[in-house]
Write a protein that binds this DNA or RNA. Structure first.
Length: 865
RNA sequence: GCGGGCGUGGCGGAAUUGGUAGACGCGCGGGACUUAGAAUCCCGUGACGAAAGUCGUGGGGGUUCGAGUCCCUCCGCCCGCACCA
């Protein structure tokens, strides 16, 4: 395992006692912070608030380096804001429901609850060893009935407010295990345990009506100024607002199944209507079902489409397949024009009407489809600058705007004019007493299906009664708690198998009824925990209105980019729904968002193809190249590409090992130093060692500076020597830059400024040591004796003391334990964790002006060209 | 497939608004101290070149007095895609 370079124990090295002992110091300071309760935030504190939050972890059992990175960043912000005099809320909790607990139950015969709480205990210990300035008194676990009770209450509130619906949706069904599979449990169309081909099944499920907020969720993105532009863009595209036309195509009665007279499609390209070559409907479209009723081959095709996972990526990357139903649709502008109606595997029921008209010349997917089935294409939009007479489409569709061609009365119009003209004409036409077309705003966003056929989640507080239907559990009966006596010896939902739990009396009529056995998506749990943190103690309501309104929004939220869409969008919706039901007073929960990059590490592979973990490998430099061997056997190991730390590639580094060997401050410092926080950081042994050396160097530097500053005047000297002034400038420049870059969360740049400042301080101390050396001949500034520091004039001593006091406070947010140790060494009897942020003296930031060539002259002197 | 992002020395990266590219760290080379150094300190380190200088921010093109930064295009890598969290 990784160890820092050690002093040989056999030597009585005089420096050994000067070495900073992280293990001793970190435990000691953590205990002191804990005993004094300095990170517990009071809700009645009158100072201005600042709420910093990192995405809470799933209690998998051990923290990983991604957590270390995330929580270190948040802790830096929390400590800096605290030093700036704000009342900082920095809480922590556990996203404790979820599938892994049930998998553990099945594989290891442990109860999900026991497994989860054991994991929480282990991870809490690990987080504490990081020295995070967290308010643990507000700790939340979402699997605690004291938490999910309020979630159930809000579910019922949302239901009353019309924000909960019940409708059908598709799930992945494992026909062998007889269980619903998550998308990640479907591998190459097969169930991960059974290996059976999955099927799509329809279930009636509970939905949150997030689409009711599609417009406000989209519009408010513009106001989220402290969100990364890329996240706003991704959410914008996810919500996917599009303006278009709903068009009703009549079906040729001679070909239509009984009772089917029309086909509704939504299109954003009504201008291309004269380029239509076919119609296509989703495999689960009602027309497909109707057509299949007397067509076994079509039925088989639909079955085949269902034998695959439900994920979007899978649907869209699969080979495009279609089946001609024999039905013919009538072109809305030409009664004699018939279009074949296909069932196609790339059309999804969830978007628009689940049906399209295909214009192959101007849509790539449609073009691929016609090229496969030989339906041909007619270009109807001519790109600017292209001769319409020679314009043909073969393999690449033209999806841009242009001039209309081959389109009868639309010819010569722009695409925009043609869209308008088609809408205008079809709006007036009527078919079966309704307009043939209606202008429509459509969203790609779908309602949020929250039903999960699983045990380890928040029970949905509903009772199904044959006479009364779906009846809400009365509030006095909340929480509906999970039964603990469940078994995992067979697949499926243990709540369903439980002998008694689901059998209850209907709250309305009293007749025997059945509890809802579905539990909620864990995204529900994580959609309001930040609001609960503002007062996690209140027992009779999800939130305490004055408190939640005072603390929210979260000023700085920090987490992985992988949550850019779902978690953040759901939380934005949930906050709006809570506002609508009176639980909060705001719309947007996160005023500032920061998405951090991943932690990556190089991979190691044995000749037999097995992966080796970094802790099992010794890497040596061999001239220009690096070589790796297995420590245990000496076997050569191939050094592979740098990839995201993962269990499968075994390229993980355990934070415990690093903290044990180097200390938490080193782990924190390296995490922040090497890469911009929004990019991936490559964890390397060399980098960690560099951080460790810097910790030792700072410790020596502060010690030496403290010694040289001894006897510094209490009063600020009236004048400073050039050397003292240079030091003061270095200190204040570093202070100004770190303050600035911390605000922007540019931690890696802050680290560079601190290095520069430390280098400057070191140079001055070195110079003093050299002067000292000429006097006493030892050459060591650390030498004791009355002459030490004698060369430092009072003004320089004052400047040294100022500089080192600034330095310690500058690195405190990143390395809090070392900072406390240094702070104490400097003679403070306070905690640096409670010290205020230093004040910049602006006049010290003024650079000596250099006369630079006036760039404006360039403009006037370019006559020599 | 769709949506989003990233690309700068040997490596991680820095560079308000378009204005001296390479701060800071790692690595490497040299030196000092040392019985020793994987500790510490000092010097050097984009490429080519003896030098003057020339080239240089993924490739190609463009805008501009001036481009790492703006525009177009291509290539490569990464993330998300609604039941992983």
């Amino acid at each position: 395992m990784a160890r820092p370079p050690q002093q040989p124990k056999t030597f009585a090295n005089p420096m050994a006692s000067d070495r900073y002992n992280a293990r001793d110091a970190e435990a000691r300071w953590q205990k002191i912070w804990d005993q004094r309760g300095i990170f517990a935030t009071r809700n009645d504190d009158p100072r201005p608030k600042y709420y910093v939050l990192e995405m809470f972890p799933y209690p998998s059992g051990r923290i990983h380096m991604g957590h270390v990175r995330n929580y270190t960043m948040g802790d830096v912000v929390a400590r800096v804001k605290r030093a700036m005099g704000l009342n900082v809320l920095h809480p922590m909790g556990w996203d404790a429901f979820g599938m892994p607990a049930e998998n553990a139950a099945m594989e290891r015969k442990v109860h999900p609850k026991a497994w989860t709480y054991d994991n929480i205990a282990a991870m809490k210990k690990q987080l504490k060893s990081m020295g995070l300035s967290l308010d643990w008194s507000r700790e939340i676990a979402t699997c605690d009935p004291a938490y999910y009770k309020h979630q159930q209450k809000m579910f019922l509130d949302f239901l009353r407010a019309g924000l909960v619906e019940r409708k059908k949706s598709k799930v992945n069904w494992d026909p062998v295990d007889q269980t619903v599979l998550a998308n990640e449990q479907v591998i190459d169309d097969r169930g991960w345990r059974s290996g059976a081909l999955v099927e799509q099944r329809e279930l009636t499920q509970w939905f949150f009506a997030i689409t009711k907020f599609a417009a406000p969720l989209l519009e408010a993105l513009d106001q989220l100024e402290r969100w990364p532009e890329k996240v706003r863009l991704m959410q914008k595209n996810w919500i996917g607002r599009s303006e278009g036309l709903l068009v009703r195509f009549a079906l040729d009665p001679a070909t239509a199944p009984k009772g089917e007279a029309e086909l509704e499609v939504f299109t954003t390209r009504p201008d291309t209507l004269f380029g239509a070559k076919f119609m296509a409907v989703a495999p689960d479209h009602p027309l497909a079902a109707a057509a299949a009723s007397n067509n076994p081959a079509l039925r088989e095709f639909i079955e085949q489409c269902r034998r695959r996972g439900t994920s979007q990526a899978e649907i869209e990357t699969a080979e495009k397949l279609g089946f001609d139903t024999g039905i013919r649709a009538v072109h809305p502008f030409d009664p004699s024009w018939r279009l074949p109606v296909y069932v196609a595997n790339f059309i999804v029921m969830e978007y628009g009407t689940g049906a399209i008209f295909g214009c192959p010349a101007h849509d790539q997917r449609d073009l691929d489809f016609v090229n496969k089935y030989g339906l041909g294409n007619v270009p109807v939009v001519s790109p600017p600058g292209v001769d319409p007479k020679t314009f043909v489409i073969t393999d690449t569709a033209y999806e841009g705007d242009g001039t209309m061609i081959n389109s009868r009365f639309l010819d010569g119009m722009t695409s925009a004019q043609a869209k308008e003209e088609v809408a205008r004409r079809l709006e007036k036409e009527r078919f079966h007493n309704r307009p043939v077309a209606e202008r429509q705003v459509n969203y790609r966003l779908r309602d949020w299906g929250i039903s999960r056929q699983r045990y380890w989640g928040c029970p949905i507080p509903i009772i199904h009664c044959e006479t009364c239907g779906a009846v809400p559990v009365p509030e006095k009966d909340l929480p509906v708690t999970l039964p603990e006596d469940v078994t995992f010896d067979r697949p499926g939902n243990p709540l369903d198998h439980h002998p008694t739990w689901k059998h209850v009396a209907c709250p309305q009529c009293g007749k025997p009824a059945r509890r809802e056995t579905d539990t909620m998506d864990t995204f529900v749990d994580s959609s309001w925990y930040f609001e609960r943190f503002t007062d996690p103690w209140i027992a009779n309501a999800p939130t305490d209105r004055p408190m939640v309104d005072a603390w929210m929004p979260v000023d700085q939220y920090i987490g992985g980019i992988e949550h850019a869409i779902l978690h953040l969008l759901y939380s934005r919706f949930f906050t709006r729904a809570m506002k609508a039901t009176g639980h909060v007073g705001l719309d947007e929960p996160f005023a500032g968002l920061f998405t951090q990059g991943m932690v990556v590490h190089e991979t190691y592979r044995l000749p037999n193809g097995d992966w080796a973990a970094p802790a099992e490998v010794k890497v040596e430099a061999d001239g220009e190249t690096r070589r790796a061997r297995l420590i245990a056997t000496g076997e050569a190991v191939e050094i592979g590409p740098i990839e995201k730390m993962s269990k499968s590639k075994r390229n993980t580094v355990d934070p415990d090992d690093i903290i044990e060997a180097y200390g938490a401050d080193v782990a924190r410092w390296f995490m922040l130093s090497d890469s911009p926080p929004d990019r991936d950081v490559n964890w390397t042994e060399k980098g960690v060692q560099g951080a460790w050396r810097f910790v030792q160097r700072l410790w020596r530097l502060v010690g030496e500076a403290a010694e040289l500053a001894q006897g510094a005047p209490a009063e600020r000297p009236a004048a400073f020597s050039a050397q003292a002034l240079a030091l003061r400038k270095a200190a204040h420049r570093a202070l100004a830059r770190v303050s600035d870059d911390i605000e922007k969360l540019h931690f890696n740049v802050c680290v560079a400024h601190i290095y520069e400042f430390a280098n400057a301080l070191n140079t001055i101390i070195g110079d003093l040591g050299a002067q000292n050396g000429t006097q006493n001949g030892t050459g060591s500034a650390a030498d004791e004796g009355p002459q030490t520091g004698s060369v430092a004039t009072p003004d320089l001593r004052w400047a040294l003391r100022e500089a080192v006091n600034i330095l310690v406070r500058l690195f405190h947010p990143m390395m809090p334990h070392l900072a406390e140790e240094c702070w104490a060494l400097l003679g403070h009897d306070t905690l640096v964790a409670q010290a205020s942020w230093p004040e910049v003296e602006a006049e010290l930031l003024v650079e000596e002006t250099l006369t630079l060539p006036n760039n404006n002259n360039v403009k006037n002197t370019d006559d020599d060209k």
